[in-house]
Design a binder for these strands. Structure first.
Lengths: 201, 201
DNA sequence: CCGGGGTGGTGACATTCGTCATCGACCGGC
DNA sequence: GCCGGTCGATGACGAATGTCACCACCCCGG
């Protein structure tokens, strides 16, 4: 019997997934959590075999949670289910030792199959997401460029970004400018959109 | 027996909801659709009592779909389930005759109860969303301001917005300026964020 | 019929932003 | 030890943007 932990902030989805997985032979949902912290606590006490995580949790993202789980609950394999299959996330997830990465558009039988695959130590990535990730490639941005672009995401003026990044306004504009040109955007706001679409910020 | 149509682009969620609702007495899922067009066609042939719609469908949003359903499939009541409970959407939905509006964070039992309430001709709105909507109030933007702000959402320069809106760049700047000041934003990009958060665009 | 509000426009002005050249410091690899 | 890349900064220039004042038109309600 594969013991599964579910982590998703949406109650409805969570209980729905539970209902789905319970219909499968050899799979048992032993715990549910709505936040990453809750999931971590649950995992420590219930010791599940596989953790099925949503990518976006209220307190932090599923990738960070997976890393914590691997560290604190050895023997618990992880897989991520998400609505927004940005290529960058997939790379980060795989680099973090996540065993499966699926969009929520897959069918229930695929989900159950992937739970089994991951439990057996295998890996599974949705073919379409994989294709996106390969064609999208790595982020061309440097670490600082990503930081600054992220701070620009809310539409704040350069001066505020500078304060929040502890940089000179001039430097901020340089980074934004180079980021925008790397992303083929006309300005930083379009650059934010491009980077978001690729999962680079 | 309440006959239900499910419309959600995410296969997993859809079949999970089906599994959930099927556990309830007196509720039967008679059709599933992944797009608005598909849902419309399904509804015409299956004549469901209640349509449970996702807010975001690939071809158009759940509110527009609900309007089409009311027109083309009389006797079919509608309710919307969503991950993103922006206040503006709720208002638009209720104005469009939608009977129920829920976030996906509700429990399965609430969902089933709301299906029954809506089927009986009643209305149900998640209390928290209702509170948000009331406190958020109406959009302070005029029709044109909203249009222009929406075109600005992708970070396009003023000139492109002007072309796409068939306006002079100067006029566009006037609208954006007044929209930003109404929203308490320092620039149009921040204004876009504020408007998005409230569901006004 | 008059006023107010929304729409669409013009012109001017100051500010912000994008771009570029250039500089120094630091770190890694060859 | 030198070279290249990233980080951080400065200054300068032109273009884009935000802001304001003001105009005209239309429509609707009082």
């Amino acid at each position: 019997m594969i013991r599964v932990l579910l982590a998703d902030d949406e109650n409805l989805i969570r209980s729905a997934l539970r209902a789905l997985l319970s219909l499968e032979d050899g799979i048992e949902v032993v715990a549910e959590a709505a936040t990453a912290d809750e999931a971590l606590a649950m995992a420590r006490s219930f010791r599940p075999d596989v953790a099925v995580l949503d990518l976006q949790l209220p307190d932090r993202d599923g990738i960070a949670l997976a890393a914590d789980l691997h560290e604190q609950v050895p023997g618990c394999r992880t897989m991520i289910v998400t609505s927004h299959g940005r290529p960058g996330y997939l790379k980060r997830a795989l680099a973090g030792g996540v065993g499966g990465f699926l969009p929520k558009t897959v069918s229930a039988s695929v989900l159950a199959q992937v739970v089994r695959t991951v439990h057996a130590g295998g890996r599974y990535v949705d073919p379409e997401l994989a294709a996106d990730a390969i064609s999208a490639g790595d982020s061309p941005l440097t670490a600082r460029e990503s930081d600054v672009l992220e701070l620009a995401a809310e539409g704040a003026p350069v001066e505020e970004i500078a304060r929040r990044a502890a940089l000179t306004p001039g430097t901020v504009r340089n980074y934004l400018s180079s980021a925008a040109s790397k992303l083929g955007a006309a300005n930083r706001h379009e650059a934010v959109h491009v980077a978001r679409r690729h999962g680079w910020i």
